[in-house]
Design a protein around this nucleic acid. Structure first.
Lengths: 221, 221
DNA sequence: GAGTGGTCTAGACCACCAC
DNA sequence: TGGTGGTCTAGACCACTCC
């Protein structure tokens, strides 16, 4: 037996899917919706929380609840994120500590340059990347015109965003993100770049293609 | 100013991190905890919902709330999931439809063999894989001893599990999963396998390593 | 039956936003 | 200032588990 919450969520999902509620449109206020569905506001908010976790609606304190605009799907492939419409970059000087030093294989307190990159589509941010480069390798040019790596390793996980990440990406803290940690090694074996990408789970995917010429099997567990 | 919910969640997290609450142990009942923290049960349950979404606790209706047992981290690399302790396989005959036909590049209704693989560690399931192979390629041997692929493409996304997946993996529907769709192509260009893996986001990671010998840059957006 | 978590209610009070 | 969502309360009632 579906709960009231699930029934209401399903009804709103259907209204959005059929276009009765359009992207960017404001939903009726929570008291109004609660009255319409004959439930308490707590139950109605519970239903909205479901839709929020699915990335179907956005909540804006003091303004209302809105149908989420359908943005392009993001594809991460070969170290490149597409589509890349607008990127704002903020450069910071810092020193390697902890995990960052390990990733870059440098001693603690090694000078680094951080490039904080936020990708935008229209008004809304859609991707967050923090790129770390040993300072002696970082010049004036942006990092994506740099030395060619000989090896790139991507570590991909699914998790909830930190509150800061959620705020930056304007997503709810309950919407899962795809987190990619990339380490690029130069031809000499030196790590030339470490990057941490955070992408909204509901509209991002990462593609990896491997070519085999000799042995190796397509196994699994 | 942190909310009561966040404060309580943080306190419980700390108790678990410091070992005051041990893996597998039952928490005090919700009314007891609510009294201890001097909040309503609704607020206390709100805090527990946070911990549940992080994979820190498990809720069991009618029994209690339990600290989640720390299982090994799962690593998916080169098409192999490790550690692979126990796998139960169920074989099913079916016909390609929709997305499956597209992935395998076969006409609709092509006969397929499905291998439903559930990885276990002790009592608890930790991974779910559905492997699809054109029936003329599927023999008696399990799929991981099959023909060598020339190319393997992995498509990785982060999302919430379906209710069925959550039940199979014994995770909450609010814990994100890492979903990997793999397509293996044989030396002749024919797709020899499609696989859909679902891994709990809080303890799985996928690793991909690319080697470059010529051009290509480490870009990003 | 006793105890647990799951759902839901009705309403108070606060914080944010726009006019 | 009025409307919106955010947090929290106190308590009713139901469903599940175990004795």
């Amino acid at each position: 037996m579906p709960s009231l919450r699930d029934t209401i969520a399903e009804d709103l999902r259907a209204q959005i899917a059929t276009g009765q509620l359009k992207p960017g449109e404001r939903l009726a206020s929570e008291p109004q919706l609660a009255a319409r569905y004959k439930v308490s506001t707590a139950t109605l908010r519970n239903a909205l929380a479901l839709l929020q976790a699915e990335g179907v609606i956005e909540k804006h304190h003091g303004k209302g609840n809105y149908v989420r605009r359908a943005l392009s799907r993001l594809t991460y492939e070969g170290g490149v994120l597409t589509p890349t419409l607008h990127v704002t970059v903020r450069t910071t000087q810092l020193r390697a500590e902890g995990l960052l030093a390990i990733l870059l294989k440098v001693p603690s307190r090694t000078p680094l340059t951080e490039f904080l990159c936020i990708g935008h589509e229209g008004e809304s941010p859609h991707s967050l990347a923090r790129i770390y480069i040993p300072r002696d390798l970082a010049a004036a040019e942006p990092p994506w015109c740099r030395q060619r790596p000989a090896e790139v390793q991507d570590r991909v996980t699914a998790r909830l965003p930190t509150p800061a990440e959620a705020a930056t990406l304007r997503i709810t803290p309950t919407l899962a993100v795809l987190a990619i940690t990339r380490v690029s090694t130069g031809p000499t074996g030196r790590v030339i770049e470490a990057a941490r990408l955070v992408l909204p789970g509901d509209r991002a995917e990462a593609l990896f293609t491997a070519h085999h010429t000799t042995q190796e099997g397509g196994a699994e567990g």
